[in-house]
Amino acid sequence: MAGLLNELDRPVDRRVLVLRVNGEDHQLLLPVHKTLLEVLREDLGLTGTKHGCELGECGTCTVLVAGEPQLSCLVLPVQLGGREVTTVEGLTAGSELTPLQRAFADLGAAQCGYCTPGMLLSATALLRSNPKPNATEIREALAGNLCRCTGYSKIVEAVELAASGRG
């Protein structure tokens, strides 16, 4: 659906898309170049997804696409083809924290908390594919998510605690 002009008089290709996010369908008219990160934050008000670079370098914007961690700043909604997106807001069913969220909160794995949504989603994907990861596996699985506050130790401990089922 071309033809609409943007403010700079360049033609902008816009499409109507249905985006499935956290179990809800959203019908949106979007410029094709708008990233999933921008759509989540600006069009859907899901500001729990954060950004540190918008260039695919920091992992902060990680969401799950069909259960797999993806950098939402590099994904275009037009590429999704109906696959479901999960953001930090979608981790919790109702108001109960998941064991992973509980462990992050209790162990101090979130200091400024800015990297936390991305960490939680990467860790959720890890625990689904490997429910009992050891510390090395946790570190490797999360290596694409930078955190500047914690020195990572408490995040590893939180994932271990959640995996242990004791959390």
Binding site: L46, T47, G48, T49, T87, V88, E89, L91, T92, L97, Q101, R102, F104, A105, D106, G108, A110, G113, T116, P117, L120
Partner: peptide
């Protein structure tokens, strides 16, 4: 604010 931070 730990709980607020882990739910976004």
């Amino acid at each position: 604010d730990a709980a607020a931070k882990v739910i976004g």
